[in-house]
């Protein structure tokens, strides 16, 4: 997707205050064109799905903010449970955690996003990565540290999902994470038959524009 026009917001202007997320002009601009996405945009969409789109099923799901995921990755299991205690993850059936490879790479801030889901009915972690197994080490580290926070008794299984659509460019990984989270919420919570292969390059490009428009829409109604 190419940028249609420059956003009508200043870099440091608050575009939207949405629960725990503050979207500035510079964050919104990441959606306007083929840019890498940051923790604020992914955190916003997680909050939108959990507290807005699926608000009536909040007791079953948690979509954890990427900043909280990162904080958990930098501490031990006991501290991760302490950090997340208000999220009541041990009561949720499905827990979505965006994974960044920040820490395993030299570049500050990371280069790639993927999605780790804890599926309580199957006591399993599933890792969805649109770039082969790029974030597998980070996802394994995260699964290793979240046990106490998730309140698991038996050690959960861990599976790298093989049916994951792959990105064909170097900028959409964050969009893939958001698309996977949304479709999987539909599958888990509404028993909808979901085919992840629906997440094509065109689907992702349309979603990028839709999320941009969603933020503008929420700004107008909230």
């Amino acid at each position: 997707m190419s940028a249609i026009t420059k956003s009508p917001f200043y870099e440091n202007e608050v575009v939207l205050s949405f629960f725990d997320t503050l979207i500035y002009g510079r964050d919104l601009e990441l959606l306007n064109g083929n840019h890498w996405l940051n923790d604020q945009i992914i955190g916003f969409y997680n909050e939108y799905l959990e507290k807005f789109a699926y608000a009536d099923q909040r007791t079953d799901i948690a979509l954890v903010h990427p900043d909280v995921v990162f904080a958990c990755l930098s501490v031990d299991a006991t501290s991760a449970a302490e950090i997340t205690k208000d999220l009541k993850l041990s009561e949720k059936k499905y827990v979505f955690m965006p994974v960044n490879n920040n820490g395993n790479v030299q570049e500050a801030g990371g280069t790639h996003w993927s999605l780790l889901v804890y599926h309580r009915p199957e006591n399993s972690f599933f890792h969805f990565d649109s770039w082969s197994e790029n974030n597998l080490p980070n996802a394994r580290d995260l699964a290793g540290v979240m046990g106490a926070a998730l309140g698991v008794s038996d050690k959960p299984a861990f599976a790298q999902r093989r049916d994951v659509p792959q990105q064909h460019n170097g900028f959409d990984c964050g969009m893939y994470v958001m698309c996977f989270s949304e479709l999987l919420c539909g599958q888990y919570l509404e028993d909808r038959a979901v085919d992840l292969s629906d997440v094509t390059a065109e689907f992702v490009a349309r979603k990028r524009r839709k999320v941009y428009d969603l933020i503008i829409h929420l700004r107008e109604i909230m």
Binding site: L22, L37, A71, G109, G110, H112, C173
Partner: peptide
Amino acid sequence: DAETPASLGMEDGDTIDVFDEQIGG
């Protein structure tokens, strides 16, 4: 940004963690 120590229930000696922006493509 709009929150304050009062609204966050902070006490003397509390710690704020600072993290880098995370990005990826």
